[in-house]
């Protein structure tokens, strides 16, 4: 299933059969390069053609959707990331990769579970919020945890970190369990992290800690570095 965009649910536009077929050919890459360029010029100024292209794309997707899925080799993702991000990222990122991999795989699995509707009977968990404040400065960040996606978002003003430093987020579960690193905020604040599924049930009342850490620090098992702020996750 690819789902339907709003456009494909609307009544089809009144187009000539020739133009409609042209849109279908464009979607299926059947036009020559010259024809495609000429069509794209029309597409820019004729919204009715855009709607028709979307319409055909949604319907032809049902044909591609009939193919059984095939998992690519694990090396492909590594090559994609190397191609896009390059090599030589900070050491901390690599050090924390196992944690993030777990979190991301968990998030992906959760997504699959949600997609397949396997957990439809579970009551929805509430969104959680925390104000992360610093004891010794005016720093105040806001955290929001969305239970349906496992995404933790942090917002708020943060001064630029010195070179070689990164922000790292930790969680102390409410049941008194040991601190768990959620990962570095690659893009700083605002930024997002994916919470490992094993922690999803332990976040209400949990304490979030954000610290800054040397980017080349070794894997840490407890919050290290300068603590910038902390706060407790609670509903609403």
């Amino acid at each position: 299933m690819t789902g339907r965009s709003d456009d494909s649910d609307r009544p089809p536009p009144d187009l000539s059969g020739t133009d409609s077929a042209l849109c279908a050919e464009y979607v299926l890459n059947l036009l020559s390069d010259d024809e495609a360029r000429a069509f794209e010029r029309r597409l820019e100024r004729e919204p009715v053609l855009q709607t028709e292209v979307t319409y055909w794309a949604e319907h032809f997707a049902d044909i591609s959707d009939s193919l059984p899925e095939v998992a690519p080799a694990a090396a492909v993702l590594r090559r994609i990331e190397t191609e896009i991000f390059g090599t030589g990222r900070q050491t901390l990122w690599r050090a924390l990769l196992p944690y993030l991999l777990g979190a991301l795989v968990a998030a992906a699995l959760a997504w699959v579970v949600n997609t397949k509707g396997l957990l439809n009977t579970a009551p929805p968990a509430p969104d959680l919020y925390a104000d992360l404040v610093a004891a010794d400065s005016g720093l105040a960040l806001q955290a929001h945890y969305a239970p349906d996606t496992g995404v933790l978002t942090l917002r708020g003003p943060v001064d630029d970190l010195p070179p070689g430093r990164v922000l790292v987020v930790w969680v102390h579960p409410a049941d008194g369990g040991g601190p768990v690193v959620l990962g570095p905020l690659e893009t700083g604040v605002p930024g997002t992290l994916y919470v490992p599924e094993v922690l999803w049930g332990d976040l209400a009342g949990a304490t979030l800690v954000i610290s800054d850490l040397a980017a080349d620090a070794a894997t840490a098992s407890a919050p290290t570095g300068r603590e910038l702020a902390r706060g407790t996750l609670t509903p609403g």
Binding site: D65, L67, P68, E69, V70, A71, P72, V76, L77, I80, E81, I84, F85, L100, A103, L104, V105, A107, A108, W111, V112, T115, G183, E186, T187, G191, T192, L193, Y194
Partner: peptide
């Protein structure tokens, strides 16, 4: 968002690879 790309890949690569 780099982690998001990985999440996207995990959820969609089997279909696109097919």
């Amino acid at each position: 968002d780099r982690p998001a790309l990985r999440v996207l890949y995990q959820g969609t690569a089997p279909k696109l690879y097919a």
